[in-house]
Computed example of a mutant assay.
Amino acid sequence: MNKDSTTGIAYKSSEVERLLGTSSSNLRKWCMILENEGYEFVRGTNRSRLFYNQDVVVLKRLKELVQIRGMALEGAANALVSLIETEKRTTSVPEANDLEEQHSNVFVSRSELKQIFEKLDAQEQFNKLLLERLEQQQSLMNQQINNRDEQLLGAIRTLTDSHKQIAANLDSPKKGFFARLFGK
Protein backbone atom coordinates (compact mmCIF):
# COMPACT_ATOMS: atom_id res chain seq x y z
CA MET A 1 0.00 0.00 0.00
CA ASN A 2 1.35 3.42 -0.96
CA LYS A 3 1.03 6.02 1.76
CA ASP A 4 0.45 8.77 -0.85
CA SER A 5 -2.56 6.98 -2.31
CA THR A 6 -4.84 8.05 0.55
CA THR A 7 -3.47 11.57 0.96
CA GLY A 8 -4.87 14.50 -0.88
CA ILE A 9 -8.43 15.44 -1.58
CA ALA A 10 -11.11 12.78 -1.29
CA TYR A 11 -13.96 13.23 -3.75
CA LYS A 12 -17.58 12.23 -3.27
CA SER A 13 -19.40 10.15 -5.87
CA SER A 14 -21.29 13.17 -7.20
CA GLU A 15 -18.04 15.06 -7.78
CA VAL A 16 -16.49 12.12 -9.62
CA GLU A 17 -19.64 11.78 -11.75
CA ARG A 18 -19.28 15.42 -12.75
CA LEU A 19 -15.54 15.06 -13.42
CA LEU A 20 -16.08 12.00 -15.62
CA GLY A 21 -19.26 13.24 -17.23
CA THR A 22 -21.17 10.09 -16.42
CA SER A 23 -24.24 9.00 -14.47
CA SER A 24 -24.34 7.66 -10.92
CA SER A 25 -25.46 4.24 -12.16
CA ASN A 26 -22.48 3.98 -14.54
CA LEU A 27 -20.06 5.02 -11.80
CA ARG A 28 -21.54 2.46 -9.38
CA LYS A 29 -21.37 -0.28 -12.02
CA TRP A 30 -17.74 0.56 -12.90
CA CYS A 31 -16.73 0.56 -9.22
CA MET A 32 -18.40 -2.80 -8.56
CA ILE A 33 -16.67 -4.39 -11.56
CA LEU A 34 -13.29 -2.97 -10.48
CA GLU A 35 -13.89 -4.27 -6.95
CA ASN A 36 -14.77 -7.70 -8.38
CA GLU A 37 -11.38 -7.64 -10.13
CA GLY A 38 -9.63 -6.86 -6.83
CA TYR A 39 -9.40 -3.07 -6.82
CA GLU A 40 -10.26 -1.56 -3.45
CA PHE A 41 -11.86 1.83 -2.91
CA VAL A 42 -11.72 3.68 0.38
CA ARG A 43 -15.01 3.59 2.23
CA GLY A 44 -16.24 6.33 4.53
CA THR A 45 -18.00 5.90 7.83
CA ASN A 46 -21.36 5.47 6.08
CA ARG A 47 -19.90 2.82 3.72
CA SER A 48 -19.95 5.18 0.75
CA ARG A 49 -16.94 5.22 -1.52
CA LEU A 50 -14.39 8.00 -1.28
CA PHE A 51 -12.36 8.65 -4.41
CA TYR A 52 -8.80 9.94 -4.46
CA ASN A 53 -6.91 11.25 -7.48
CA GLN A 54 -5.58 7.79 -8.37
CA ASP A 55 -9.11 6.36 -8.29
CA VAL A 56 -10.35 9.11 -10.59
CA VAL A 57 -7.50 8.35 -13.03
CA VAL A 58 -8.35 4.64 -12.99
CA LEU A 59 -12.03 5.40 -13.63
CA LYS A 60 -11.12 7.77 -16.48
CA ARG A 61 -9.00 5.05 -18.07
CA LEU A 62 -11.81 2.54 -17.66
CA LYS A 63 -14.28 4.94 -19.29
CA GLU A 64 -11.86 5.52 -22.18
CA LEU A 65 -11.30 1.80 -22.74
CA VAL A 66 -15.01 1.00 -22.68
CA GLN A 67 -16.62 3.99 -24.37
CA ILE A 68 -13.93 5.14 -26.79
CA ARG A 69 -12.01 1.98 -27.62
CA GLY A 70 -15.02 -0.34 -27.39
CA MET A 71 -13.55 -2.91 -24.98
CA ALA A 72 -15.82 -5.10 -22.87
CA LEU A 73 -16.28 -3.69 -19.38
CA GLU A 74 -15.00 -6.78 -17.55
CA GLY A 75 -11.98 -7.08 -19.84
CA ALA A 76 -11.08 -3.41 -19.45
CA ALA A 77 -11.40 -3.65 -15.65
CA ASN A 78 -9.25 -6.79 -15.56
CA ALA A 79 -6.56 -5.14 -17.71
CA LEU A 80 -6.50 -2.01 -15.55
CA VAL A 81 -6.31 -3.88 -12.25
CA SER A 82 -3.48 -6.06 -13.55
CA LEU A 83 -1.52 -2.95 -14.54
CA ILE A 84 -1.93 -1.20 -11.21
CA GLU A 85 0.69 -2.02 -8.64
CA THR A 86 -0.67 -3.35 -5.35
CA GLU A 87 1.06 -0.67 -3.30
CA LYS A 88 -0.71 2.13 -5.22
CA ARG A 89 -4.24 0.93 -4.43
CA THR A 90 -6.26 2.80 -1.84
CA THR A 91 -7.05 0.50 1.07
CA SER A 92 -7.16 2.45 4.35
CA VAL A 93 -10.31 4.00 5.72
CA PRO A 94 -9.85 7.58 6.96
CA GLU A 95 -12.26 8.89 9.53
CA ALA A 96 -14.48 11.84 8.66
CA ASN A 97 -12.59 13.96 11.20
CA ASP A 98 -9.29 13.18 9.44
CA LEU A 99 -10.71 14.50 6.17
CA GLU A 100 -11.88 17.69 7.86
CA GLU A 101 -8.42 18.16 9.38
CA GLN A 102 -6.79 17.73 5.98
CA HIS A 103 -8.91 20.56 4.58
CA SER A 104 -8.48 22.84 7.61
CA ASN A 105 -4.68 22.50 7.88
CA VAL A 106 -3.77 24.71 4.96
CA PHE A 107 -0.56 26.64 5.40
CA VAL A 108 0.56 29.67 3.43
CA SER A 109 4.18 30.75 3.45
CA ARG A 110 5.18 34.30 4.33
CA SER A 111 6.23 35.04 0.76
CA GLU A 112 2.88 33.80 -0.58
CA LEU A 113 1.06 35.84 2.04
CA LYS A 114 3.14 38.90 1.13
CA GLN A 115 2.29 38.42 -2.56
CA ILE A 116 -1.39 38.14 -1.71
CA PHE A 117 -1.28 41.37 0.29
CA GLU A 118 0.65 43.15 -2.49
CA LYS A 119 -1.96 42.08 -5.02
CA LEU A 120 -4.70 43.21 -2.66
CA ASP A 121 -3.05 46.63 -2.25
CA ALA A 122 -2.63 46.96 -6.02
CA GLN A 123 -6.30 46.09 -6.49
CA GLU A 124 -7.35 48.69 -3.91
CA GLN A 125 -5.23 51.36 -5.65
CA PHE A 126 -6.75 50.42 -8.99
CA ASN A 127 -10.25 50.64 -7.51
CA LYS A 128 -9.50 54.12 -6.07
CA LEU A 129 -8.18 55.33 -9.44
CA LEU A 130 -11.21 53.91 -11.19
CA LEU A 131 -13.54 55.61 -8.70
CA GLU A 132 -11.79 58.97 -9.23
CA ARG A 133 -12.13 58.64 -13.00
CA LEU A 134 -15.80 57.77 -12.66
CA GLU A 135 -16.37 60.83 -10.47
CA GLN A 136 -14.54 63.05 -13.02
CA GLN A 137 -16.62 61.63 -15.83
CA GLN A 138 -19.84 62.17 -13.87
CA SER A 139 -18.84 65.78 -13.15
CA LEU A 140 -18.09 66.41 -16.83
CA MET A 141 -21.42 64.90 -17.85
CA ASN A 142 -23.26 67.08 -15.32
CA GLN A 143 -21.55 70.21 -16.70
CA GLN A 144 -22.47 69.28 -20.26
CA ILE A 145 -26.08 68.65 -19.25
CA ASN A 146 -26.27 72.02 -17.45
CA ASN A 147 -24.80 73.83 -20.50
CA ARG A 148 -27.29 72.14 -22.80
CA ASP A 149 -30.17 73.03 -20.47
CA GLU A 150 -29.08 76.70 -20.41
CA GLN A 151 -28.89 76.79 -24.22
CA LEU A 152 -32.33 75.22 -24.51
CA LEU A 153 -33.81 77.71 -22.02
CA GLY A 154 -32.21 80.60 -23.95
CA ALA A 155 -33.67 79.31 -27.21
CA ILE A 156 -37.10 78.90 -25.58
CA ARG A 157 -36.97 82.48 -24.22
CA THR A 158 -36.00 83.83 -27.63
CA LEU A 159 -38.86 81.95 -29.27
CA THR A 160 -41.28 83.13 -26.59
CA ASP A 161 -40.22 86.77 -27.07
CA SER A 162 -40.61 86.40 -30.85
CA HIS A 163 -44.09 84.94 -30.41
CA LYS A 164 -45.07 87.78 -28.08
CA GLN A 165 -43.89 90.41 -30.58
CA ILE A 166 -45.75 88.71 -33.40
CA ALA A 167 -48.89 88.48 -31.29
CA ALA A 168 -48.60 92.15 -30.29
CA ASN A 169 -48.28 93.20 -33.91
CA LEU A 170 -51.32 91.15 -34.87
CA ASP A 171 -53.46 92.56 -32.03
CA SER A 172 -52.84 96.24 -32.79
CA PRO A 173 -55.33 97.86 -35.23
CA LYS A 174 -53.88 98.91 -38.54
CA LYS A 175 -53.64 102.61 -39.06
CA GLY A 176 -54.16 104.17 -42.37
CA PHE A 177 -51.45 105.78 -44.42
CA PHE A 178 -52.15 109.34 -43.31
CA ALA A 179 -52.49 108.33 -39.64
CA ARG A 180 -49.15 106.73 -39.72
CA LEU A 181 -47.66 109.62 -41.64
CA PHE A 182 -48.89 112.29 -39.26
CA GLY A 183 -48.60 110.09 -36.11
CA LYS A 184 -52.23 110.05 -35.06
Score class of each variant (00 low, 15 high):
Asn46His: 14
Gly38Val: 02
Ser109Met: 03
Glu15Thr: 08
Asn53Tyr: 14
Thr22Lys: 01
Glu87Lys: 15
His103Ser: 12
Ile68Arg: 14
Glu101Cys: 08
Gln151Asn: 11
Glu74Asn: 11
Thr160Asp: 15
Asn105Met: 10
Ser92His: 12
Ile9Asn: 10
Leu62Gly: 02
Glu15Ser: 07
Thr22His: 00
Ala77Pro: 01
Ser82Ile: 08
Ala79Arg: 03
Ala167Met: 10
Gly38Ala: 02
Asp121Asn: 13
Gln67Ser: 14
Gly75Met: 08
Gly70Trp: 04
Leu120Phe: 11
Arg28Cys: 05
Gly21Val: 00
Val93Cys: 11
Glu64Gly: 07
Phe51Tyr: 11
Gln54Asn: 12
Leu170Gly: 04
Glu40Gly: 05
Leu131Pro: 02
Glu95Ala: 12
Lys12Pro: 02
Ser13Gln: 10
Lys174Gln: 09
Gln151Phe: 14
Cys31Met: 01
Lys184Cys: 14
Asp121Cys: 09
Val66Arg: 05
Met1Asp: 12
Thr160Pro: 05
Leu27Pro: 01
Leu27Gly: 00
Glu87Gly: 13
Leu181Glu: 10
Lys175Asp: 04
Leu134Ile: 12
Gln123Trp: 05
Ser48Trp: 12
Arg49Pro: 00
Ala76Gln: 00
Ser13Leu: 05
Trp30Arg: 02
Ala76Leu: 01
Glu101Pro: 03
Arg89Met: 15
Gln54Phe: 08
Gly75Arg: 07
Gly183Asp: 12
Ile84Thr: 07
Val81Lys: 01
Leu131Cys: 10
Glu135Met: 14
Gly154Asn: 14
Met71Asn: 10
Thr86His: 12
Phe182Ser: 01
Val106Tyr: 09
Phe41Trp: 03
Glu95Lys: 13
Lys175Val: 07
Leu73Trp: 03
Thr90Leu: 00
Leu83Ser: 14
Lys184Tyr: 15
Leu27His: 00
Trp30Thr: 01
Arg157Thr: 12
Trp30Glu: 00
Ala77Met: 03
Thr45Glu: 15
Phe182Glu: 02
Tyr39Ser: 03
Glu150Met: 12
Tyr52Arg: 04
Tyr11Trp: 06
Glu150Gln: 15
Ser104Val: 04
Glu150Leu: 13
Ala79Asn: 03
Arg47Asn: 15
Arg43Val: 08
Ala168Thr: 04
Arg49Met: 02
Gln123Ser: 13
Ile156Ser: 10
Arg148Leu: 15
Met32Thr: 10
Cys31Phe: 04
Ser24Gly: 08
Arg69Asn: 10
Arg28Lys: 05
Gln54Ile: 13
Asn169Leu: 08
Arg157Met: 09
Leu181Ile: 07
Ser24Lys: 13
Phe182Asn: 05
Leu120Arg: 14
Val81Leu: 01
Glu150Ala: 12
Gln165Asn: 05
Ala76Tyr: 00
Gln67Trp: 07
Leu34Ser: 02
Pro173Cys: 02
Cys31Gly: 01
Glu112Arg: 08
Val58Gln: 05
Phe182Trp: 11
Gly183Asn: 12
Ile33Asn: 01
Glu118Tyr: 04
Ser111Asn: 06
Glu40Met: 11
His103Glu: 14
Asp149Lys: 12
Lys3Arg: 11
Phe107Cys: 09
Met141Ala: 14
Gln67Phe: 09
Ser24Ile: 07
Phe107Gly: 08
Glu35Gln: 04
Arg43Tyr: 06
Gly44Asp: 06
Glu100Trp: 11
Leu130Lys: 13
Met1Phe: 10
Arg28Met: 05
Arg43Cys: 06
Val58Glu: 05
Leu130Glu: 15
Leu83Tyr: 07
Gly176Glu: 03
Thr6Val: 13
Phe126Val: 11
Asn36Ile: 00
Ala122Leu: 14
Ala79Leu: 06
Arg157Pro: 04
Gln136Ile: 11
